[in-house]
Design a protein around this nucleic acid. Structure first.
Lengths: 144, 144
DNA sequence: ATAGATGCAAATGTTTTGCAGGAAA
DNA sequence: TTTCCTGCAAAACATTTGCATCTAT
């Protein structure tokens, strides 16, 4: 059975908060993990619906919020205003194709250090940042 | 009379597109320029209303869109989901205080170069980026 | 006179909330 | 059997659009 660690983590979180294990929550977790990141609520809803026909949008949103609190998912918003969910892993930023929507992750310690330096320079205590590069991916750049 | 250059630029734009000069458009332009950047639609509306009591939200939005097209304003969206308008000037990014909303501009050529390099590395044609640092400004960081 | 502008009300699109009925513990 | 969930419908919220009316040219 796949995603054993995540299922257990969710169960532990539910128990700790006196919440209940339900078919809907299991289904959302499974679909989310199978998607392997950057999935929108809409797509999540569509896919969960395939195996659990009566689930509502509300439950998908609420469950994803729950998974975020449990540390099993992370919310991401790009410029299209649609929330996407990622599986948590090392810090990174994103390259986004404005044509086809392809999302690529990148990490640059030089930029991270520059951010710290800039925040210090202006006396800010840095809490988080948002860094997205928008452009045309290799495929879209060369006309289809 | 202040903002002479901008008034002329707007007039030229209106003429070129067969649009009309109206009291509302003048009022929005004036208030926007007096604000000196990072003003929200709501605040703009509030201030325009002080001198032109019957203006509608719609007209403020439509006029700001017009000013953007005319190159007299630039839209900016931070994480609060509210659009702000800036007076166009050299490229820069932002530091935003998550507590009091203070906005500080910064520029870092090292980061700009790193962005170009990263885009190249992944084969992207870079079109634009979004880079915001969120944290506590000096005042908020030190309690009060 | 006429193309274009205005302002209200209603729509938009995504996400959230109220609530009555339903399921897990 | 009590506490928590679910799913629908409605609300929220910033912004946009339809439309009848008004105005600059």
């Amino acid at each position: 059975m796949a995603h054993e660690a995540e299922r257990k983590a969710l169960l532990a979180f539910l128990e700790k908060h006196n919440l209940k294990q339900t078919r809907q929550r299991e289904a959302v977790l499974d679909v989310f993990l199978e998607a392997e990141g950057h999935i929108t609520s809409e797509e999540l809803y569509r896919r969960v619906r395939e195996r659990h026909k009566t689930i509502g949008y509300t439950t998908v949103y609420r469950t994803m919020k729950l998974l975020c609190e449990a540390g099993l998912a992370v919310e991401r918003c790009f410029d299209d205003g649609i929330t996407r969910y990622e599986i948590p892993h090392e810090h990174h930023d994103h390259l986004v194709c404005t044509q086809c929507g392809t999302i690529v992750e990148f990490e640059c310690s030089m930029i991270e250090e520059a951010q710290e330096r800039i925040a210090r320079e202006y006396g800010f205590r840095l809490l988080r940042h948002r860094h997205e590069l928008y452009g045309l991916c290799p495929r879209c750049r060369d006309g289809t």
